[in-house]
């Protein structure tokens, strides 16, 4: 990696490793991961379940310290979480004691990004309608379906407009149509607000459609298998799904990923 490439790097993984202490000894989860995310990049991370993707994101979000190497954000080691790195959690983390509207407004009531009440309501209304949650504005999350909770978590994260978005399988619980809508909405938000994104996904199509680079990680411990540049310029629309290059790229990445899924499966049947 040249120094040039590091100049506008927002996030850097420098030979990052992580091992958990378990009753059965040290468990290596992330192994010598090395890549950087520049301003305006859209990185998609793809790899088998349980390989260490969330763990990798947690280190950048500031919830976990690497046991080897460094994770840098804006050229400083990550010390802890912060509002400039918005996170959409795999488990959503929708606050059950707040209504849908209050959930979206939560970040906007905090000192770090407080806005006038009028504006707050306007932002809430905006995302309520974008996410198709207007009818449930005053319901509690217990009345929402899984996909609705996921959309609520997305709205809550978007509302505070973080410059850097960490998204852990954010569209996993959605039907194909809603998923496509959410992908397009994300592209619109990016075009308008110029964010940098790290997205974890299991969908090869989603990765190609959204990302500028795709990081394929290996079965546990997560190492970088390959980093693939996606050749399509932004703005993108759904027509790129029909392009021959899309199909080629998809077959290529599928093959890579399938190998790792098989490796992971072999691994878990060994450990049983």
């Amino acid at each position: 990696m040249t120094n040039d490439a590091n100049k506008n790097a927002r996030a850097q993984f420098e030979h990052v490793s992580l091992a958990f202490d378990t009753p059965r000894g040290k468990l290596q989860i992330v192994d010598d991961v090395n890549y950087s995310i520049s301003d305006g990049d859209f990185i998609a991370v793809i790899g088998p379940s349980g390989c260490g993707k969330t763990t990798m994101m947690n280190m950048l979000a500031g919830f976990q310290k690497p046991t080897g190497g460094r994770v840098l954000f804006d050229n400083a080691p990550v010390q802890g979480p912060g509002p400039e790195r918005g996170v959409i959690f795999q488990e959503y983390g929708v606050f059950p004691w707040l209504t849908v509207r209050q959930n979206i407004a939560f970040g906007l009531t905090l000192h770090a990004n407080r806005v006038a009440p009028g504006e707050r309501e306007a932002i809430c209304d905006h995302y309520l309608s974008l996410m198709g949650l207007s009818d449930f504005a005053n319901s509690f999350p217990k009345h929402l379906s899984g996909g609705m909770r996921q959309r609520l978590a997305i709205a809550r994260a978007y509302a505070v407009k973080p410059q850097f978005l960490l998204m852990d399988e954010p569209f996993g619980a959605l039907d194909a149509q809603t998923r496509a809508n959410m992908q397009n909405l994300l592209l619109q938000v990016l075009a308008a607000e110029g964010k940098t994104v790290m997205l974890i996904t299991h969908s090869v199509e989603e990765a190609i459609y959204l990302a500028s680079r795709i990081v394929v990680v290996t079965a546990r411990p997560a190492r970088i298998k390959e980093i693939i540049e996606v050749p399509f310029p932004y703005p993108r629309d759904e027509s790129i799904h029909e392009r021959p290059e899309f199909g080629q790229l998809r077959s290529y990445i599928r093959e890579l990923v399938m190998n790792e899924y098989r490796a992971q499966q072999a691994q878990s049947s060994f450990s049983e």
């Binding site: 983390g93 770090a112 809550r156």
Partner: peptide, 20 residues
């Protein structure tokens, strides 16, 4: 999880205590 969510939205220690 909820504390982490609040942190990534920018909540201070005091805000996490009061609101979460």
């Amino acid at each position: 999880l909820y504390i982490r969510v609040a942190q990534t939205l920018g909540a201070s220690e005091l805000e996490i205590f009061r609101k979460v």
